[in-house]
Simulated assay, not measured.
Amino acid sequence: MLRKFVLLAISLVVAGVLASCSALEGDGRHLMPLSGATKSRLAAMGSSPQAAMMIRIFKEESALEVWKQTAGGSYKLFQTYEICTWSGELGPKFYEGDRQAPEGFYTITPGLMNPNSNYYLAFNLGFPNRYDRTHGRTGSHLMVHGACSSAGCYAMEDEQIAEIYALARESFTGGNRSFEVQIFPFRMTPDNMAKHQSSEHIDFWNNIKQGYDYFEVASTPPAWDVCDGRYVFRQPSAVNATASMAGSCQAVVADPTIVSAFQARQSADAAAIQSAIVRLADAEAAAAEAEQRRLNAEAEMAARGEAINNAVDGFFGTLFSPLDALAPSQPETAPQGTPQG
C-alpha cells in the first residue's frame, strides 16, 4: 500500500511539472495519450507504458532506438525511428556554436522535458554532462525535437517526437526518475570501428564503446560516471550515476557473469577489429593496384592510337607526294611595273 501511495504521489508531481509547462498554443500536445496500438505492442513484448525506458542514437545510420524494460528486468527494443536530420559530423561536440550534435551518455529527468518547444515537442539532452564539463566543452539547448530542422540537435518528424515524448512521459509517471540517452557515431561493430581507426576521435569512441558493449551483454543500461577524464560504467545498483567516483577507474563493476561476458566481447571485438583493419588495407591495396592497371591500360591505348595516327599520316603523305611533283609548274609572273629582262 505504501509503495502504491509513493508511486501515486510521484505520478501527481510529474504530471504537475509537465502540465505546468503547457504548450504555448494550449493544444495539450504534450499530454496526447499513447495509441492503443502502441500499448498493445508494449504488452506483447512484456512491457508497459509506465516501464523504464532507454534511448540509443546512431549518427551514421540516422537511427533513434527506444528500448523498454520488460517484466523480467531486461530491456527489449520497442521501435527504431529514422532521424529526420542532425547537424555536424561524426564526433563529439566541443564548443558553443560549432553546430555539432553531441555524442556520449546523457541522463534525462522530467525537468529536461520541453513541452514549450518551438519545434513541436522536445527534450533537452542536458549537455554538457559531467564528462563534457571535465573536458571544458560548452554548448546549450541541445535537444531531440520535432520539425526536422537542426543546429546541433537531433530532429525528428512531429509524429515521431510525439510518440517518443509520450513514452518518456508515461515512464516518468510510472515512478522512474530518469531515462538514459546513449549517443554513438555509428553502430559500434568491429567493421565500423576498423573503418574509422584513423579518426582523431577513435580514443573517445573506444571509451564509449565500453558502455555500448555493457548494454549489449547485460540487456540493461549501465550506470555511468567519469574518472580521470574517461567514462566508466558500473552495474546500476552499484553506484549512483551522479556520484563522484573514488579509487581506480575500473571499466565495469557488475555481476560476475556480466563482467565475464563484457570482457569476452571486448576481447573478441579487438581481434575482429584488427582482422577488419587488415582486410580494409588489403582491399585498398587491391583497389589501388586495379586503378593503376586501368591508368596504365589507358596510357597504352592512347600511345597506340597516337602511333597509328602518325603511321596513317605518314602513309598518305608519301602516297600523294609524287603527284605533287608531276603537277605542271606555273610560270613566274613578274611584279607589275617591273621591267622584263
Rank of each mutant, 00 (worst) to 15 (best):
D98L: 14
S62M: 14
S87Q: 12
S47N: 10
G126F: 09
G97C: 13
S149E: 14
E180Q: 15
S178V: 05
T109C: 01
N116S: 11
A168R: 04
S62L: 13
L64N: 04
P49D: 05
V66S: 03
Q182V: 01
I57S: 05
E89V: 09
E89G: 06
L90R: 04
G174Y: 04
T138N: 11
C84T: 12
P92V: 05
Q50I: 09
G104C: 11
L125F: 06
R56L: 07
P115S: 08
P92W: 01
I55P: 00
V144S: 07
Y95L: 13
V144I: 15
E159P: 02
P185E: 03
G174L: 08
E60C: 00
A44N: 12
W67Y: 11
E89Q: 14
P128H: 02
S150W: 06
P102R: 03
V66A: 08
I183Q: 02
A166S: 11
F105Q: 05
M45F: 00
F179I: 11
M113Q: 01
H145Q: 14
G139V: 10
F78N: 04
K59P: 07
M143E: 12
I161A: 03
T173A: 14
Y165E: 02
G46T: 05
G73A: 13
T80A: 10
G72A: 15
G139L: 10
R137A: 10
Q79A: 03
H145N: 11
E159Y: 08
G73D: 15
C148E: 07
A168P: 09
T80C: 06
L121M: 02
Q160H: 15
R130D: 15
Y81G: 04
P128W: 03
N176T: 14
I183C: 03
G175C: 03
Y95P: 00
L121Y: 01
S171V: 06
G72F: 03
F184N: 06
G136H: 07
E65M: 13
T107Y: 14
M143S: 08
F172A: 08
H145T: 06
L112Y: 01
N176S: 13
G139F: 06
Q50P: 09
E65K: 11
M156P: 00
Y75S: 11
A63F: 09
S150D: 10
G46C: 07
G152F: 05
E170W: 12
I83C: 05
M54L: 11
Q69D: 07
F172K: 10
G91Y: 01
